[in-house]
Amino acid sequence: MNMTIINITVISHTFFYLLGIPGLEDQHIWISIPFFTSYIIVLLGNSLLIFVVITDHSLHEPMYIFLCILAGLDITLSTITIPKALSIFWFNSGGISLDGCITQLFFIHFTFIAESGILLLMAFDRYIAICYPLRYTMILTPSVIIKSCMTIYLRSLFTVCPMIFLLKRLPFCKTNLLPHTLCEHIGLAKYACASIQVNIWYGLFVLVITVVLDIILIVASYFVILHAIFQMPSQDARHKALNTCGSHICVILLFYIPGVFTALVQRFGKQIPPHVHILIANVCILIPPVMNPIIYGIKTKQIKNRVSYLLFERQR
């Protein structure tokens, strides 16, 4: 019996097309308006915040340094995602190489985990300021601040890098059409023609040891903070302490609640149309970078006064 050996060559895609928001292609121009407006606000608001903190020596305190780093991460996250989305909406230019897609998702996950870590450091800052005010400068020294920030960045780097290797090992032979405005880990991995169980479990592991752990520590710190505040004998002191925590709490809620909501929608909202999932994911990326400088500009007296001086009084 003659046996014929058939060689099957699996072609792995190295180029992909981001489709934007499938089902709403005729609305892409209108959808681009809030994207573009948000990006301008992110750049102007966060850049102004960084400039104010750097130039005003009275703001060279741990809380404002952390806020400055948070603003830088917001600019990075928006810049790595929004311009590409706008190119899709305006020019139908969704082409992206596999390496470009992996680079984008690397920065998305890196900045998200880093922002979560910075929010944890800001909670620790409030904990020290309220529970140990006399030892504040002794505990949060410049050396401690630098080491803490480096730890956060290294944590982000070492947890996200394995995702890159897990993706690079996969052959993408299904489709090279990605129904989204951006690349993300599992969103790309699910189009591979190989098992992605390791990717799924590692993604869950990273989420638990970073974001979930940060949330637990932040909540625990605020239980202690609130307990200390309500033990204060003076009502004015309680009001002042609560006011210093108010802006941070707002930023925490804006950062974590949309992310948790998105995760719940992806897990349980199987009947929700795909374009709604994509819109929600984009809103989660847009809201925190837009609102963070506005919240701190309104609720932090020192920043508000400095911005008012730069924009209005200095021009007189």
Rank of each mutant, 00 (worst) to 15 (best):
N2T: 00
M3T: 06
M3E: 13
N7M: 10
T14Q: 15
Y17C: 01
G20K: 03
P22S: 06
P22G: 09
L24S: 03
E25R: 07
E25V: 11
W30E: 08
I31E: 06
S32Q: 08
S32C: 06
F36N: 08
T37C: 13
I41K: 10
F51Q: 12
T55P: 02
F66A: 08
S78W: 06
K84R: 10
A85V: 03
G95H: 00
D99H: 07
I102S: 04
F106Q: 05
H109A: 10
H109R: 08
E115L: 14
E115N: 11
S116R: 09
L119W: 07
F124A: 12
D125Q: 09
Y127N: 01
L134G: 02
M138D: 15
M138A: 11
M163P: 01
C173W: 12
K174L: 15
L177A: 12
P179K: 10
A194D: 11
W201C: 11
Y202L: 01
L204C: 04
V208M: 03
L213A: 12
I225A: 07
H227M: 06
A228P: 01
I229M: 13
I229R: 05
M232Q: 06
M232L: 10
P233M: 03
S234F: 04
Q235H: 13
D236V: 08
H239S: 12
L242F: 02
L242G: 02
I252L: 14
L253G: 01
L254C: 14
Y256L: 10
Y256Q: 09
G259N: 11
F261A: 13
T262H: 05
K270L: 12
K270H: 10
K270G: 10
I272S: 00
I278H: 01
A281P: 00
N292L: 13
G297Q: 15
K299C: 07
T300Q: 15
V307H: 06
S308D: 09
L311N: 02
